[in-house]
Computed example of a mutant assay.
Amino acid sequence: MKSPVRLLRSIRTKAAALFVAVASCAALATAAAPAHADTQICEQYGTTVIQGQYVVQNNRWGTSAEQCVNVTANGFDVTRAEGSVPTNGAPKSYPSVFNGCHYTNCSPGTKLPAQLSTISSAPSSVSYRYVDNAVYDAAYDIWLDPTPRTDGVNRTEIMIWFNRVGPVQPVGSQTGTATVAGRSWEVWTGNNGGNDVISFVAPSAIASWSFDVMDFVDATVARGMAQNSWYLTSVQAGFEPWQGGAGLGLGSFSSSVELGGGSGGPVEPEEPEEPAEPGACRVSYTANSWAGGFTADVKVTNTGTTAVDGWALGFTLPAGQTVTQAWNATLTPSSGTVRAVNAAFNRRLEPGGSQSFGFQGAYSGTYAKATQFTLNGAVCTTA
């Protein structure tokens, strides 16, 4: 028998259809409403509220060059986008609209942060206007964290690339393909030095779409890059320009979060998933233990054909084990499901190449080795 969560998630298609119908009615009502006075934002982190529930942000974080957005009743247009940054690095900005919380700024009446296990669906709709005389991606961002945080950087960022123009690519490297929410995607995984990133890249431009955010969350959990005990903190839609960007526009945006995934009572176990396919990685874990303590030397090898630029190795420590110090990587948390993130000098894994790190720990009971290794969310084989 399926759990209440799975039963609720199984009716998303019908819910999405109803959502689209309601959205169409809302669009007719909006058309009949009084005219909305546009708002110009040129301040670096300037914001304003639209529809009484979403925040539009200029969010010019990667350049000192001027950027302005004209905020309409339902979206925004980029009217000025000066400057450029190298295409092999981070973009210069992320003009966008969001539902949820972003660096302590929470949208009016939002239900976020919300624990994933309590969300039955999160229907959303977005439409974009593209230009060809710029280098950019059109990205929908979904942010997840182990805590219900409303400030700072979250643990995992899910990106849905609706379009990309120019020589730009997501963080990390392509680690596979997937069908999510009825569409086919390239799947890229990596770490940008501050958080894990999984990107679903459309093979061709998508101008508008209505979908359920939880379909992408579920796909991320299945790849080991989040857990159902984590929190959805915000969803955002906008553009990441590297060069230019004037003329880009977001015509409409809607987002809601339906709670009720958890009843508070006993829940039957989920039906078992198919085991994950091994990724292009291999891990060697060599330990030396003594009464109450141990050291571990970990070597991760890229067995694929493309380089991994920025890595995070996830693994599970047995109960009773705690990390006390580490070298050549940053390990968090100190027990349970641990994530080791590369140092600045060893962030790149060439095809066939390896990087190593180590740590010292304490334990109680009987010593056992760590298990369940994943590289940027992809399951690794063990040597």
Rank of each mutant, 00 (worst) to 15 (best):
S208R: 10
L248N: 01
A202S: 15
S184H: 14
N195T: 14
S210A: 15
A246H: 07
S234Q: 06
Q174N: 00
T189F: 07
S234N: 13
V221R: 04
S204I: 09
Y231R: 04
S184K: 13
G224V: 03
W188H: 15
L248E: 04
A178E: 07
P203E: 13
P203M: 14
S256V: 14
S208P: 06
N191Q: 12
T175F: 00
T177C: 07
S199W: 00
A207Q: 15
L250T: 02
G249P: 05
A207N: 14
W242Q: 01
S254E: 03
S184L: 11
W185H: 13
T177N: 12
A205W: 06
G251N: 15
V201S: 02
T220D: 07
Q227N: 12
L248H: 02
D212V: 10
N228Y: 14
F200M: 07
A219F: 03
P203K: 14
L232M: 02
W188M: 10
S199C: 13
A202E: 11
T175A: 01
S229L: 05
W242L: 04
S229A: 12
S184F: 09
R223K: 15
S256I: 11
V235H: 01
V213K: 00
Q227E: 14
A219P: 01
V201D: 04
D215E: 14
V217Y: 04
Q174C: 01
S252C: 10
G182K: 06
P203Q: 11
A226R: 02
W230S: 00
W209I: 13
A181V: 05
S208K: 14
A178P: 04
D215T: 09
G193T: 13
T220Q: 01
W185Q: 15
P241V: 11
E186H: 14
A178R: 00
M225C: 08
G244Y: 00
F216E: 04
W242R: 04
N192G: 05
W209Y: 14
Q243H: 10
D196T: 11
T179H: 09
A202K: 09
M214R: 01
T220N: 08
F211A: 10
G224H: 00
Q236Y: 05
G244F: 01
S254L: 12
V221W: 02
G238P: 03
G190M: 10
I206T: 13
S210H: 09
P203S: 15
S199K: 05
D196A: 08
A205C: 12
G182F: 03
V180L: 10
N192D: 15
P203W: 12
E186A: 12
G194L: 09
V187K: 07
V217S: 03
T220E: 08
A178T: 01
A178C: 06
V197G: 06
G251C: 10
A246V: 10
S210F: 06
Y231A: 04
